[in-house]
């Protein structure tokens, strides 16, 4: 017998829509808004910057000028900014567990649902 889903009320649909909105904004935007996201390049400006001290040759100086930056002090932060790639192996392992765990969770729960779909589409398999 085919499964008959319940009819969702209009209020229930609105509730689900709001849940999705809160979920999207809460999980993705809030960390950015609260400044919890990493990814910052940290500038390490040098004192009394000159183009030579910043490692820029004559052609590169022309290129900076064409981009509207003629004062080496204005390019100091851009040139000296670097990512910090130091990391803890524990954090990497946690990340790996999170990603693998996510896929395992989804595939296992999907399989449970898929069996319902196949049973309804092809009938219950006789053993």
């Amino acid at each position: 017998m085919a499964y008959k889903p319940p009819k969702q009320s209009f209020a229930g649909q609105i509730f689900d829509v709001i849940t999705l909105l809160v979920l999207t904004v809460g999980a993705l935007y809030l960390p950015l808004y609260l400044g919890l996201a990493g990814a910052a390049k940290t500038p390490a400006p040098i004192a009394n910057p000159t183009w030579e001290a910043l490692g820029q040759n004559a052609t590169e100086q022309q290129q900076w000028a064409a981009l509207g930056v003629t004062d080496p002090a204005a390019a100091n932060d851009i040139i000296t900014a670097r990512f910090d790639y130091s990391f803890s192996w524990m954090a990497l392992v946690v990340m790996a567990i999170l990603v693998i765990g996510y896929f395992v969770l989804v595939v296992r729960l999907s399989d449970k649902e898929y069996r319902d779909v196949i049973a309804e589409r092809f009938g219950v398999k006789k053993r």
């Binding site: 889903p5 319940p6 689900d16 849940t19 999705l20 979920l23 999207t24 999980a27 993705l28 960390p31 919890l36 996201a37 990493g38 990814a39 990512f83 910090d84 790639y85 990391f87 954090a91 990497l92 990340m95 999170l98 990603v99 996510y102 969770l105 989804v106 729960l109 649902e113």
Partner: peptide
């Protein structure tokens, strides 16, 4: 992960919560 680990965790967490929401509420 190198430089943007927080976003990676935020994104996967988002999908985990959304998956649980789907399986336990929406799928019916």
């Amino acid at each position: 992960f190198l430089g943007y680990g927080t976003q990676l965790i935020a994104m996967v967490s988002f999908y985990i919560i959304a998956s649980l929401w789907f399986h336990f509420r929406r799928y019916r």
